[in-house]
Computed example of a mutant assay.
Amino acid sequence: MKPTSKYETIRQILQDMKLPTYRYLQIAEAIFKQRIGEFERMTMLPKALRDELIRAIGYQVSSVTPVLEKTSSQVSKVLFAIAGDERVEAVQLSYQRGWKSYCISTQCGCGFGCQFCATGTIGLKRNLTADEITDQLMYFHLNGHALDSVSFMGMGEALANPHIFDALTILTDKHLFGLGHRRITVSTIGILPGIERLMMDFPQVNLTFSLHSPFDNQRSELMPINNRFPLHDVMKVLDQHIRQTKRKVYIAYILLRGVNDSTEHAEAVAALLRGRGFGEHLYHVNLIPYNSTDVTPQNYSQSDQSRVKTFVRILKSREINFTVRTQFGTDINAACGQLYGTN
Rank of each mutant, 00 (worst) to 15 (best):
residue 254 I to V: 15
residue 267 E to K: 15
residue 276 R to F: 08
residue 256 L to N: 01
residue 253 Y to L: 14
residue 278 F to K: 00
residue 260 N to C: 11
residue 256 L to C: 02
residue 252 A to K: 15
residue 244 Q to W: 11
residue 261 D to N: 10
residue 274 R to D: 04
residue 248 K to L: 08
residue 278 F to L: 01
residue 252 A to F: 06
residue 270 A to C: 05
residue 256 L to Y: 04
residue 272 L to E: 06
residue 246 K to W: 03
residue 273 L to N: 03
residue 242 I to V: 15
residue 251 I to A: 09
residue 254 I to F: 00
residue 252 A to W: 13
residue 250 Y to C: 03
residue 269 V to R: 09
residue 242 I to K: 12
residue 246 K to M: 03
residue 271 A to T: 14
residue 246 K to F: 03
residue 273 L to Q: 07
residue 274 R to E: 08
residue 251 I to V: 13
residue 244 Q to E: 11
residue 242 I to A: 12
residue 278 F to E: 02
residue 242 I to H: 13
residue 276 R to H: 05
residue 277 G to T: 02
residue 273 L to R: 02
residue 244 Q to R: 14
residue 268 A to R: 09
residue 243 R to V: 11
residue 251 I to L: 12
residue 265 H to V: 07
residue 265 H to G: 10
residue 258 G to C: 07
residue 270 A to H: 05
residue 275 G to P: 00
residue 263 T to W: 00
residue 255 L to H: 07
residue 266 A to D: 06
residue 242 I to N: 10
residue 260 N to D: 10
residue 259 V to W: 12
residue 273 L to K: 02
residue 244 Q to H: 11
residue 248 K to V: 03
residue 254 I to Q: 04
residue 269 V to E: 08
residue 255 L to E: 09
residue 242 I to W: 12
residue 265 H to R: 05
residue 245 T to F: 07
residue 246 K to T: 04
residue 268 A to D: 01
residue 261 D to W: 04
residue 260 N to Y: 06
residue 251 I to G: 08
residue 269 V to N: 06
residue 274 R to Q: 11
residue 259 V to D: 04
residue 248 K to W: 02
residue 256 L to R: 05
residue 263 T to F: 01
residue 252 A to T: 05
residue 247 R to I: 00
residue 248 K to C: 02
residue 243 R to E: 10
residue 264 E to S: 11
residue 271 A to M: 10
residue 256 L to H: 07
residue 258 G to H: 06
residue 259 V to G: 03
residue 276 R to A: 07
residue 243 R to C: 10
residue 259 V to Q: 06
residue 243 R to H: 12
residue 248 K to P: 01
residue 273 L to T: 03
residue 270 A to W: 06
residue 247 R to T: 01
